[in-house]
Simulated scan of single mutants.
Amino acid sequence: MKLLVVGLGGVVGAVLRYIISKIFKEVMEREHPISTLFINVAGCFFIGFLSSKHLPQGYKLFLTTGLLGGFTTYSTFMLETSMYVKKSKHKKAFVYVFLSIVFGIMAAGAGIWLANAN
């Protein structure tokens, strides 16, 4: 049953990621890693928030391991960074990695803070 819950969450997360990426592509009219940055930072916020909530195990598995696992895009982040390096765009690669890490940590912390705010 746990595998089914995680799998269903992963499907929902992957579909959400695809939709958000398409929206960014249409708005920016080209491929751009800003959608991956947005998705990963949002995922960091929500996993921080959810990790501080007392949820039944099934809900937590669906939301964190499933939905957010399918939603966030570490492999895409690595591919996009590698493409910048391959094209000798080292400054862009550094800025992208730096922003992803810093904003990701800040978003996870903000999620934890918000979840614990009374």
Rank of each mutant, 00 (worst) to 15 (best):
Leu63Trp: 06
Phe49Trp: 03
Ile20Ala: 06
Glu80Met: 02
Ile105Tyr: 06
Leu61Met: 14
Val85His: 05
Phe71Val: 09
Phe71Met: 12
Met78Phe: 02
Gly10Ala: 14
Ala93Pro: 00
Ala42Glu: 07
Met1Gly: 14
Tyr59Leu: 14
Phe71Trp: 07
Val12Phe: 12
Glu29Lys: 15
Leu67Met: 14
Phe38Gly: 08
Gly10Leu: 06
Gly43Ala: 02
Ser35Val: 07
Lys86Val: 01
Glu26Arg: 07
Leu99Val: 08
Gly7Lys: 04
Gly13Gln: 13
Ala14Gln: 07
Ala93Gln: 11
Cys44Ala: 05
Ser88Thr: 11
Phe77Pro: 09
His90Leu: 14
Gly70Tyr: 02
Leu50Gly: 06
Ala117Tyr: 15
Val12Ser: 05
Thr36Met: 02
Phe77Ala: 12
Leu8Glu: 06
His54Val: 13
Ala42Val: 11
Phe24Glu: 04
Phe71Lys: 15
Val102Arg: 13
Met106Tyr: 06
Val41Leu: 08
Phe71Leu: 15
Ala110Ile: 05
Lys53Pro: 03
Lys86His: 01
Cys44Ser: 15
His54Ile: 11
Lys92Arg: 11
Ser35Gln: 05
Leu68Ile: 03
Tyr18Gln: 10
Lys91Phe: 13
Val95Asn: 12
Ile20Cys: 05
Leu55Ala: 09
Lys2Met: 01
Ala115Arg: 12
Gly111Leu: 04
Pro33Tyr: 07
Val27Trp: 07
Ser82Arg: 13
Lys53Asp: 00
Gly66Pro: 02
Ile39Leu: 08
Ile101Thr: 10
Ile20His: 09
Asn116Thr: 13
Tyr74Lys: 10
Val27Asp: 01
Val11Gln: 01
Leu114Phe: 14
Leu63Thr: 09
Ala117Trp: 15
Gly69His: 09
Thr76Pro: 08
Ser51Tyr: 08
Ala107Leu: 04
Thr73Leu: 03
Gly7Thr: 05
Gly66His: 06
Met106Arg: 04
Ala115Cys: 10
Phe103Asn: 15
Asn40Cys: 00
Leu79Ser: 10
Lys91Gln: 14
Phe71His: 13
Lys53Glu: 03
Met106Pro: 00
Phe24Gln: 12
Phe45Ser: 04
Ile19Thr: 14
Gly104Cys: 03
Leu99Ile: 10
Glu26Cys: 00
Phe49Ala: 05
Ala115Asp: 10
Val6Pro: 05
Thr36Glu: 05
Thr81Pro: 09
Lys87Gln: 15
Ile20Val: 08
Gly66Ile: 01
Leu61Arg: 11
Tyr74Asp: 10
Phe94Thr: 12
Lys89Asp: 07
Pro33Phe: 06
Lys91His: 14
Gly10Asn: 08
His90Thr: 10
Asn118Thr: 13
Arg17Lys: 12
Gly10Pro: 00
Phe103Gln: 12
Val102His: 13
Ala108Tyr: 00
Lys89Ile: 00
Val12Met: 09
Phe103Glu: 14
Ala93Ile: 08
Thr81His: 00
Tyr84Gln: 08
Phe24Trp: 11
Lys89Glu: 15
Ile39Thr: 04
Phe45Asp: 00
Ala108Cys: 09
Ile19Asp: 14
Trp113Gln: 06
Ala14Lys: 13
Trp113Ser: 12
Gln57Arg: 01
